[in-house]
Amino acid sequence: MATGGRRGAAAAPLLVAVAALLLGAAGHLYPGEVCPGMDIRNNLTRLHELENCSVIEGHLQILLMFKTRPEDFRDLSFPKLIMITDYLLLFRVYGLESLKDLFPNLTVIRGSRLFFNYALVIFEMVHLKELGLYNLMNITRGSVRIEKNNELCYLATIDWSRILDSVEDNYIVLNKDDNEECGDICPGTAKGKTNCPATVINGQFVERCWTHSHCQKVCPTICKSHGCTAEGLCCHSECLGNCSQPDDPTKCVACRNFYLDGRCVETCPPPYYHFQDWRCVNFSFCQDLHHKCKNSRRQGCHQYVIHNNKCIPECPSGYTMNSSNLLCTPCLGPCPKVCHLLEGEKTIDSVTSAQELRGCTVINGSLIINIRGGNNLAAELEANLGLIEEISGYLKIRRSYALVSLSFFRKLRLIRGETLEIGNYSFYALDNQNLRQLWDWSKHNLTITQGKLFFHYNPKLCLSEIHKMEEVSGTKGRQERNDIALKTNGDQASCENELLKFSYIRTSFDKI
């Protein structure tokens, strides 16, 4: 039985969820670079991206490699990797027998973001014989899940209580170790020597080791999670996991709180800001991140802002960003909400898709409305799209047979046209069989910064309504002859009103 693990408890099935942008060198404390989270699957090609990484700022997932063999891993080693800020997950990587050479110096898994409450997941690794993470000293947050690894031993010899604050939620089941077939031998045991430290858990006094050649490092209890030197002297209180010299914040392997210019500090002093819960960055760093993602459509890219001495992905609820200094300031009234469309555009074809934009005031991208039916549609669209004030790209209304009016965009005031449909149009209306009105132009103002209007096959939309939009939106004169079809717009509506004058002759039985 794995020490510190839980057996036999019912657990939810383990679901495996399925960018080499360097964020800056980590400095003297770390020998390499800070790398983003990685999802490495199918083959070993991307694994080489770990070569210079000291910190993975995010998670590391290595999974679904069915053609790899043990010899493929023999020359692979990433000794610079010290810390993973989120979680480490391995799933069905064939041929991998140990992690001792792959990650010989991995010391800390912070667990800032977890995989279903777990910071370390080893699942269905069919050839893994031992973990071998002999320098792993601290899992700051989260638990361990090690399950269905039929060859995995050296679990009962690990004292997880020396690595985690609590072992109650560890789930370590259905491994070879369960069948008591392992016969784990710690260093020196074969020669009758006791080389590794022994600890007591559940009444068992057991030597602690990761492999037959690597003991588990056990520091004096007084050192807590700070770690200790090879001689057993406690590291500085700002260290986490390990250090090369005692009581020196510049000799830590990793930091308990924050890293700044080669030393570990309790908090980031001005003019620095907390970033990702582990390091200090200056304003320029946060500003660069903001600008890199301002026009990016890459998933996970955030326009970072500053709030409460932190550089964070977005302002919290009730705050909006001051564009001059990136500071989050309290909103006066309802907060603006910028919604970034991942692929640059979004099609609204149902109430469900409209709900995804609920509360958005600025759309960074283009909207395509293609709704053919739905219950209580006008009210639903207004509830979900009615706060949109600005669209950076274009607005396209296409084959939306259920629409009679666009009044559900009740606050839309600006279409920038930074991206144009077919390279020309910022407003595009095609084949809307029941569209009769755009907006009530006596109450609604709309500016279209650039781009043209396109109207074709809107049989109940009168040309007068379209011409009014040209005047109000500032697009009059931009359109070419064929942009607004004269014969297919309003051709099934009563669009022309003329005053009919009647004269009559009164007659009676005795007068003409």
Rank of each mutant, 00 (worst) to 15 (best):
H28I: 05
L29G: 14
P31I: 07
G32M: 11
E33L: 10
E33R: 15
V34R: 08
C35N: 00
P36G: 15
M38R: 04
M38K: 10
M38H: 10
M38G: 03
I40L: 11
R41T: 12
R41S: 15
N43M: 08
L44P: 10
L44M: 07
E51C: 15
N52I: 02
N52V: 15
N52L: 04
S54Q: 11
S54D: 02
V55I: 13
G58H: 00
H59I: 03
Q61M: 04
M65L: 06
F66P: 14
K67A: 09
K67L: 06
T68R: 14
T68L: 08
R69V: 08
P70C: 06
P70N: 02
E71F: 10
E71W: 04
F73L: 08
D75L: 09
S77V: 07
S77R: 11
S77Q: 13
S77H: 03
F78T: 01
F78Q: 02
P79E: 09
P79R: 05
L81P: 00
L81F: 01
L81Q: 00
I82H: 06
I84C: 01
D86I: 01
D86L: 00
L88I: 15
L88N: 01
L90E: 00
L90F: 05
L90I: 06
Y94T: 02
G95L: 02
L96H: 01
S98A: 05
S98R: 03
L99T: 06
L99P: 01
K100T: 06
D101S: 15
F103S: 00
N105W: 02
T107H: 10
V108W: 04
V108R: 06
V108I: 15
R110M: 10
S112G: 06
R113T: 07
R113P: 03
F115W: 15
F116M: 09
F116V: 02
N117F: 07
Y118P: 00
A119W: 01
V121T: 09
V121C: 12
I122P: 12
E124F: 05
E124S: 09
M125Y: 00
L128A: 04
K129E: 14
K129S: 09
E130R: 07
L131W: 01
L131A: 13
Y134E: 07
N135K: 14
L136M: 02
I139S: 01
T140P: 07
T140W: 04
R141E: 12
R145T: 04
N149S: 13
N150S: 10
C153F: 02
L155Q: 12
W160K: 02
R162L: 13
I163H: 01
I163W: 02
D165G: 12
D165A: 06
S166R: 06
D169V: 12
D169R: 12
N170I: 08
I172S: 13
V173R: 13
V173S: 08
V173Y: 03
L174I: 11
N175G: 10
K176T: 15
K176S: 08
D178G: 15
D178W: 07
N179Q: 07
C182V: 03
G183H: 06
D184I: 05
I185P: 09
I185F: 02
I185A: 04
I185T: 07
I185E: 04
C186I: 12
G188D: 10
G188P: 09
T189C: 10
T189P: 10
A190V: 10
A190I: 07
G192P: 07
N195T: 11
C196F: 12
A198K: 08
T199H: 14
I201G: 13
I201R: 05
N202C: 06
G203I: 04
Q204V: 06
Q204M: 10
V206Y: 03
C209H: 03
C209G: 06
W210L: 07
H212W: 08
H212Y: 14
S213A: 04
H214Q: 08
K217Q: 14
V218T: 07
C219Q: 01
C219T: 02
I222P: 11
S225K: 04
T229A: 04
T229I: 10
E231W: 04
G232A: 07
L233H: 12
C234V: 01
C234F: 03
S237K: 05
E238L: 04
C239S: 00
L240S: 04
G241E: 02
G241T: 11
N242I: 07
C243N: 00
S244P: 04
S244Y: 06
Q245P: 02
P246T: 03
D248R: 02
P249H: 01
T250K: 01
T250E: 04
V253A: 06
A254D: 07
A254V: 04
C255G: 00
C255P: 00
N257G: 05
F258I: 02
F258G: 02
Y259D: 14
Y259S: 03
L260T: 05
D261P: 01
D261A: 02
G262Y: 02
G262M: 06
R263N: 00
V265I: 07
C268E: 00
P269A: 06
P269E: 00
P269T: 02
P270V: 03
P270D: 01
P270E: 02
Y272K: 04
H274V: 12
F275S: 03
F275N: 01
D277L: 05
D277F: 04
D277G: 10
W278V: 03
C280Q: 01
N282T: 07
N282V: 05
F283W: 08
F283R: 13
S284K: 12
S284F: 03
Q287P: 03
D288H: 06
L289K: 15
H290Q: 14
H290R: 05
H291Y: 14
C293V: 03
N295H: 12
R298P: 06
Q303M: 13
Q303I: 11
Q303P: 13
V305T: 05
I306H: 02
H307M: 11
N308G: 04
N308T: 04
N309R: 09
K310I: 07
C311K: 03
C311L: 01
P313Y: 03
E314K: 12
C315K: 00
P316V: 03
S317N: 04
T320N: 09
T320I: 04
T320Y: 11
S323N: 03
S323A: 12
N325R: 08
L326Q: 09
L327P: 01
L327N: 10
P330T: 13
L332M: 13
C335W: 11
C335Y: 04
P336N: 08
